[in-house]
Lab assay of single mutants.
Amino acid sequence: QPKKFCDYCKCWIADNRPSVEFHERGKNHKENVAKR
């Protein structure tokens, strides 16, 4: 299972659409993006 690194959250997520979309909709991710 390939992994994708989220540069905002400094974490690895599964590299498939549902996982990536779920991660990017998450509160934690949105806060990290807003902080940039």
Rank of each mutant, 00 (worst) to 15 (best):
R25E: 11
K27F: 08
K10L: 11
K4A: 05
E21P: 03
S19I: 01
C6I: 03
I13S: 03
N32S: 10
K3H: 02
K35C: 00
E21T: 12
N28V: 12
D15W: 04
E21S: 08
F5C: 02
H29Q: 01
E21K: 13
F5R: 03
P18F: 04
F22P: 11
K27E: 13
K30W: 05
P2C: 00
E24M: 03
V20M: 12
S19C: 03
D15G: 10
K30C: 13
E31A: 13
R25N: 07
S19Q: 07
N28D: 09
N28Q: 10
E24G: 04
E24Q: 03
V20A: 13
K4Q: 07
K27P: 07
A34V: 10
Q1R: 00
N32K: 10
R36L: 15
N16T: 15
D7K: 06
S19M: 11
H29K: 02
E31M: 11
K35E: 10
N28T: 10
N28P: 11
V20W: 08
K27D: 08
C6P: 03
H29E: 05
N32A: 13
N16I: 15
A14G: 06
R17D: 14
N32M: 07
E31S: 05
F5N: 08
K30F: 05
Q1C: 00
N28W: 15
C11E: 12
H23N: 00
A34I: 14
F22L: 13
H29A: 05
P18S: 08
H23A: 01
E31L: 07
K10I: 04
K3M: 14
R25D: 14
E24Y: 08
K35Q: 10
A14C: 08
E24N: 09
N28F: 14
F22A: 14
A34H: 12
E24K: 08
A34T: 13
F22N: 12
C9V: 00
F5M: 11
V20P: 03
W12K: 02
E21Y: 00
S19H: 06
R36T: 11
H23F: 01
N32Q: 13
A14V: 04
Q1L: 01
P18Y: 08
V33R: 09
G26S: 13
F5L: 11
K30M: 08
W12T: 11
C6H: 02
H29T: 01
G26V: 08
G26C: 08
R36A: 13
V33Q: 08
V20H: 12
N32D: 03
H29S: 02
P2A: 13
I13C: 04
P18H: 09
N28S: 12
K3W: 00
N16G: 15
K27M: 10
A34K: 10
C11K: 11
H29W: 03
D15H: 04
H29L: 04
H23D: 04
G26W: 06
K35L: 07
R25Q: 13
K4M: 14
S19A: 11
A34W: 07
Y8E: 13
K3Q: 14
I13D: 08
K27A: 13
N16Q: 11
W12P: 15
K10C: 05
H23Y: 05
Q1V: 06
C6L: 00
K35Y: 00
N16C: 15
D15K: 04
D7W: 01
K4F: 08
Q1A: 00
A34D: 15
S19F: 01
K4E: 04
F5A: 06
K30Q: 12
C11P: 03
K10M: 05
E31H: 06
C11S: 14
C6Q: 04
C9Y: 02
D15V: 05
D7T: 15
K27H: 14
N16D: 07
K10E: 09
V33S: 09
C11Q: 15
F5E: 04
N28M: 15
K30P: 06
N32W: 10
N16W: 06
V20G: 06
K27L: 10
P2V: 14
N28G: 14
G26T: 09
C11D: 15
P18L: 07
E21F: 04
C9M: 00
E24R: 03
Y8S: 03
A34L: 07
P18G: 08
P2R: 13
E31R: 10
P18N: 08
S19T: 11
K35A: 15
G26M: 14
V33K: 06
Y8I: 09
C9H: 00
K4T: 12
P2M: 15
F22S: 12
N28Y: 10
V20T: 08
K35P: 12
E24C: 03
V20N: 12
K30G: 12
A34M: 15
K10Y: 12
H23V: 00
E31W: 00
C11W: 02
K10S: 09
C6E: 02
K4V: 03
E31C: 05
C6M: 01
N16M: 13
C6A: 03
H23W: 01
R17N: 12
P2D: 15
R17K: 10
K3Y: 13
R25V: 12
R36C: 13
I13F: 14
N16P: 13
Y8V: 06
Q1M: 07
H23T: 01
K3C: 00
C11M: 14
P2S: 14
K30R: 13
Q1K: 00
S19W: 01
P2Y: 08
F22R: 11
P18A: 10
R36Q: 05
C9L: 00
R25P: 04
D15P: 08
C9P: 02
K10G: 09
K30E: 13
C9R: 01
R36G: 15
V33N: 02
K27T: 08
A34F: 04
D7S: 09
N32C: 09
S19N: 07
N28L: 13
N16R: 09
R36K: 14
A14R: 04
R25M: 14
E21R: 11
K3D: 12
G26Q: 13
P18K: 08
F5I: 04
K27Y: 01
K10F: 04
C9G: 02
A14P: 08
Q1S: 01
C6T: 03
C11T: 14
P18C: 10
D7L: 07
R36S: 12
E21Q: 11
C6R: 01
R25Y: 04
K35D: 11
V33T: 07
E31K: 10
Y8A: 11
F5T: 02
E24T: 02
K30T: 15
V20E: 09
A14W: 05
K10R: 10
W12R: 02
F5K: 03
D7Y: 06
D7V: 02
E31N: 05
P18E: 11
C6V: 01
I13G: 03
W12Q: 14
E24P: 00
H23C: 02
E21C: 04
H23E: 02
P2Q: 15
E21M: 05
I13V: 10
A14K: 06
V20C: 02
N32E: 15
D15E: 09
R25C: 09
C6F: 01
D15A: 09
E24S: 07
F5Y: 10
A34E: 12
R17W: 04
F5D: 02
K3T: 06
